[in-house]
Amino acid sequence: MTILSKESAQDVLVDVQNVKKYFPIKGGILKRTIGHLKAVDDVSFHIHKGETLGIVGESGSGKSTLGRVILRLLDPTEGSIQFSGTEISHLKRRHFRPYRRDMQIVFQDPFASLNSKMSVAELIEEPLLVQTSLTRLERKEKAIEIIEKVGLRAADRLKYPHEFSGGQRQRISIARALITNPKFVICDEPVSALDVSIQAQVLNLMKDLQEDLGLTYLFIAHDLSVVKHISDRVAVMYLGRIVEIADKHSLYSNPLHPYTQALLTSIPVIDTDENPAPKEEKIKLTGDLPNPANPPSGCTFRTRCPLAHDRCAVERPELTELEKGHFVSCHLYTQEK
């Protein structure tokens, strides 16, 4: 299945096709593989140059694993990942290394992702040391340039991570990701550990940097309002699969999948109207996310879906284009074959 039209194929930066990542589950005295945890189960999408694709999903949906597979921090079990037209999913580590400078990642917890024994200068210059043959002076110049770009002061170079607040640390993480002039940055929950006022500062910074440097983002988060703010298109994941992907305006104004609808109605909203309009009936999901090691048959969402019917237990729904650019995988919208 391909969801790419020919004319847009040229400006696609990342193209992910049928990617799967299974983790073996070992058990018994011989520690044999007794099953697989399907963290990412047949996922396809593409990201255009300069675009931000948001991925939302609850914990355990496989969104972070997906990000790590694209960066080859984990090897995919199956599927193809193309970066700028080059297949990278099966490159050997040594051959993949040159691509790393083009693909970077910013992690969630700025307290865990920065080595506390390294100064800011060391942290930020480290990627240059690995990836380039710049001299010490050149590295320093470059580091100062990027430090100022992310809103810190050049003098902060000599400080250590513990001297900074959470928001400032996330700026350091961003500087470290951007110093190799990457084309593509995966942001894995970059603001969820921050207070709202600081979160806004970091989101603004990320938008500015995207414009300045022509970056392409894959923005992974669980907060739907943050994802809406920063993304152009949004994919919704549930138990390792994409259940809906669309332009953010059509996804948020016209969610088609029952899971997306439930996600959107469960966000508590700030109500400031004098005469609030009668609220849409909330779709309450019952129960928890099923165990990903033992997902339900057919549609994995059916155990929590208020609209599930017989067919959902038997047949896995395909991701189908219902409106232009709006894909959903749900039997409600497709005819039985």
Binding site: V196, S197, Q199, A200, Q201, L203, N204, K207, L224, S225, V226, K228, H229, Y252, I267, V269, I270
Partner: peptide, 19 residues
């Protein structure tokens, strides 16, 4: 400031208010 720094689900703002 706190309220302005929240991304709004209904409106599209290019930038968020910050403190």
């Amino acid at each position: 400031g706190l309220l302005e720094s929240l991304p709004n689900m209904d409106e599209d703002a290019d930038r968020l208010g910050t403190i």
